[in-house]
Write a protein that binds this DNA or RNA. Sequence first.
DNA 1: CATAATAAGTTGCATTTGCAACAGAAAAGA
DNA 2: TCTTTTCTGTTGCAAATGCAACTTATTATG
Lengths: 207, 207
Amino acid sequence: MDIDISSFITDFSNCCSKVQTKFFKKGEVITSYINKRNQFCILIKGKADLLRYDFNGNRTIVEHFSNNDIFGEVFYIISTNNELLVEAKSNCEVLFFIYNDIHKKCKINCKFHESVAEILPELILNKIMDLNMRIELLSKRTTREKLLSYFNIISSQKLTKSFILPFSLTDLADFLSVDRSAMMRELKLLKDDNFIKKEGNRITLLY
Amino acid sequence: MDIDISSFITDFSNCCSKVQTKFFKKGEVITSYINKRNQFCILIKGKADLLRYDFNGNRTIVEHFSNNDIFGEVFYIISTNNELLVEAKSNCEVLFFIYNDIHKKCKINCKFHESVAEILPELILNKIMDLNMRIELLSKRTTREKLLSYFNIISSQKLTKSFILPFSLTDLADFLSVDRSAMMRELKLLKDDNFIKKEGNRITLLY
DNA sequence: CATAATAAGTTGCATTTGCAACAGAAAAGA
DNA sequence: TCTTTTCTGTTGCAAATGCAACTTATTATG
């Protein structure tokens, strides 16, 4: 994605009134999915995670967001009884608006409709690709396969076989939906079997 | 989704030339994801599955499509080395077009741009909701949780606690990414623990 | 800088899951 | 209808995974 939204998104308070930008500090909750509000968010700057906690206390990192990623309640059916919340992993700048409004061009030709609404289709397509990648990972049968698939994705994104994980190992386990200690054990086995080299959070693929 | 696309989609060969409708018989391959062709499909009628076979011979039902569901290569990054293919589970009618073209309104005011292009945002939003539901299922840690989550979803969709599974049990296992015999065992345990009643492929929730 | 908090790394043990191999039931096809 | 194929249901055993508990690094924070 080559678009830098932040360069042309500054303040929409003069045009579409329901569009607003907010800032969050690391650790703060950006939004939680409770009611059906058709809320639509764009992460302009920073890193954030969509988290789910189940009754057993297990945390799942449902999605991991960075620049230009979109999220919000509008993407979720009522369904789930588990709490979903988006938490800032670093300082974040987030654009909020209501999805319903987006397609109706406002009378005044505002910046919002000129810029953001134009690129929405591309942002949405990217989101679908992310979700499909996520499904591919989660549908792998073993921890080993999940790890190797994930490493392959990172490797092909960064165009190198050696990279620092964008997650802590604790978070990676929650992202792959596996027990952390079991994952650590499997990482060691992958090292022993010469599939990977591992120095702290740097992984090098040996194949 | 209340829209019945089939009622106004018949033949686009007179307008946008690259838009076409095709028919498939049960068991036929509708498309396979190999090259990056920006192919975009709408399932007008029938049931179809997106399947992945890994090198161990495991089959995964990545997505399960019915009326108005969308799919195609445009939603996938190059990435995966596994073969992905969409197979008709019943006789199907499918609309094919290239996603790039969709936003450029053609000069002649064709039926395609009048109808399909208009409802695309809604179809896409539905797809994202489906994918999120899928991720929620797959990220459940145990077979029991996967089964119960799945049953809850079906139950709330059909507005009844008693329903016939839209999958064979074999397919359900491939959809939840678990071993079939292990799933059968867990189903029996759920029965023994009085969580469900099970008569063949009819499930009744007892809670 | 000292201290607290979080993350990495490890291990034994219990539980869950996958695998393989069946038999019987149901569905599809000739 | 008969035959073949697919699906359901079951089980023993091996392997993978989760859980709990702990130690050692590393990173925040006053």
